[in-house]
Design a protein around this nucleic acid. Structure first.
Ligand SMILES: NC(=O)c1ccc[n+]([C@@H]2O[C@H](COP(=O)([O-])OP(=O)(O)OC[C@H]3O[C@@H](n4cnc5c(N)ncnc54)[C@H](O)[C@@H]3O)[C@@H](O)[C@H]2O)c1
Ligand SMILES: NC(=O)c1ccc[n+]([C@@H]2O[C@H](COP(=O)([O-])OP(=O)(O)OC[C@H]3O[C@@H](n4cnc5c(N)ncnc54)[C@H](O)[C@@H]3O)[C@@H](O)[C@H]2O)c1
Lengths: 256, 256
DNA sequence: CGCGATTTGTGCACGTCTTCACAAGCGCCT
DNA sequence: AGGCGCTTGTGAAGACGTGCACAAATCGCG
């Protein structure tokens, strides 16, 4: 019964965990499901239906079921999904069973905020190093970590096994930093600098650009403003649910 | 021929220039083109080919041309696009001809970084207010702006015309803040708190979740690692695709 | 004035993602 | 045991996004 052998969780595995080749869109949503599941677990839910979880994660329930079926997951018809098991499954697929080491390069305005952020630790990551080019910042201690000079990157990479590099330097320096990260073997980069990075094949880059998000919102504002002649749909009022559970799935959140 | 009236550039506008109904994917890329165009303009380029701009923005040139054609934009065959004109066009479509006012709620760790960020001002936005619930933070001056209590939101909204609300509070408070923003008429929200927001129809929400980005990267690390263990498959593998496309989801190798 | 070089704009085919709708499976109750 | 209500997993259809390949348009030059 509880002996559902899940595809490759640490305990047992046929041979190769055989990571299914998940669609990118699914991969991007798994972390959201995971967050929702942790919230549910905290409130004591042992199982959850696709409808319930979809609501908590802000997606369509059919999409959620398809996503979960993709990773060979196990729900029970008529009952739903086992929350704990599903957490374990998703964490395994996302590679969160090992706590990955993150190197943060650029400890300025934004870097400070990131360094002090506890969301890293609580979601499967560990800041292994803070690096900056400014010698006057080197030595500063943030959250128990000392800022080291970026030239020490090779040494740091040798000491710790850096899985992910985070770039929070000005755009002008970002490409150089990316090159350095790649040189020391980093194959995943999260870039906060507003610029395009060029990296060799096999290296993944994701970017976060605040201004782009705002500009997308601006576009929709503009569009909405130009439609003011249209009748408003019956305002249903806001649903204020206790933080954590959002039941209505009617939201305009724009994906990707 | 020049009869092409471009939608409504500053010069004058008939009335409402009927914003074309752009695909979301296109909207999401326009800001990237805009950034690249500004860079090009700074270096003195007066025109740019789709190939050139696509390179600078990190996308496929056919996609770029299709995007630009969507917004009825004008290139000149055999020449390319006029950089200044294109900037004007895109800024118009994105609604950046008016500098939009942003209210930032939650001036903590992250909020401080955002408040001190000059990327707002330089990309078409103006921080109109800093708000926090913690009375001990009220009165603090950041970057020339004073932190006000969140209860003053209605007054602030009346004074300034807030177009966009940015939420940088803990997740537990985010829904309540969103409700407050909606109440005072804000219809676009950028949410940094790791939670799903429930908002009435007509309100747009975009979210930025650092942990999700990291977890997506983690998945690809995991997948890459599980492939390294395997023998080279057939050997077709990675034979230096010249500038070809190896892009999986975000971006990978980009030639210039 | 016409020609060739260049580059845009787009028709088309293909792949990915979303959503609906429903059969199959499960547990509970009688 | 059997039936009933609930929920999953998935086939199929359609919407959406992508990239190729090429005709149409424009410029510069002889
Ligand atoms: N502050 C924000 O809220 C915010 C928001 C979105 C994006 N960003 C982007 O994030 C980046 C950082 O922003 P910021 O406000 O923290 O800037 P900042 O100037 O405060 O900090 C940049 C830091 O990077 C360091 N640095 C510069 N070159 C370096 C190099 N080659 N190697 C290592 N470190 C180097 C600097 O010494 C400095 O400490 C910028 O690209 C900015 O556009 C910032
Ligand atoms: N720090 C980061 O780098 C980072 C990165 C990604 C996401 N986040 C998220 O951003 C949010 C803020 O993070 P932080 O590190 O700045 O936290 P923080 O605790 O430092 O700051 C939160 C601020 O919000 C204020 N606040 C609380 N309730 C409020 C309310 N109802 N109305 C107005 N203000 C209120 C608090 O007084 C505090 O000043 C969190 O949800 C966090 O998960 C932070």
């Amino acid at each position: 019964m509880s002996q559902h052998r899940h595809p490759g969780a640490p305990g047992r595995a046929g041979a190769v965990p055989a990571l299914p080749d998940l669609p990118e869109a699914t991969v991007a949503r798994l972390p959201e499901y995971l967050r929702a599941l942790h919230n549910l677990a905290e409130v004591g839910h042992e199982t959850v239906s696709s409808e319930g979880l979809a609501g908590a994660a802000g997606v369509n329930s059919a999409k959620l079921r398809k996503d979960l079926s993709q990773l060979g997951s196990y729900g029970t018809r008529g009952v739903g999904y086992d929350v704990a098991l599903l957490i374990e499954q998703i964490e395994y697929v996302l590679g969160l069973t090992q706590r990955r080491a993150v190197a943060l390069v650029g400890v300025g305005n934004l870097g400070h905020a990131l360094a002090g952020y506890d969301g890293f630790a609580s979601r499967g990551f560990r800041i292994a190093a803070l690096l900056d080019a400014d010698r006057s910042r080197v030595g500063e201690v943030i959250n128990g970590l000392v800022v080291r000079h970026v030239d020490e990157l090779p040494r740091v990479a040798a000491e710790e096994s850096i899985a992910i590099g985070v770039i929070a330097t000005p755009a002008a320096a970002a490409q150089a930093v990316a090159d350095q990260l790649v040189t020391v073997g980093v194959t995943s980069i999260l870039n906060f600098a507003p610029c395009v990075l060029s990296v060799p094949e096999g290296v993944d880059v994701r970017k976060v650009d605040l201004a782009i998000e705002l500009q997308i919102l601006s576009f929709h504002e503009h569009r909405k403003a130009s439609l003011t002649a249209l009748p408003a749909t019956g305002g249903s009022g806001l649903t204020a649910l206790p933080g954590g559970l959002a039941a209505t799935d009617t939201q305009e959140a724009i994906g990707t």
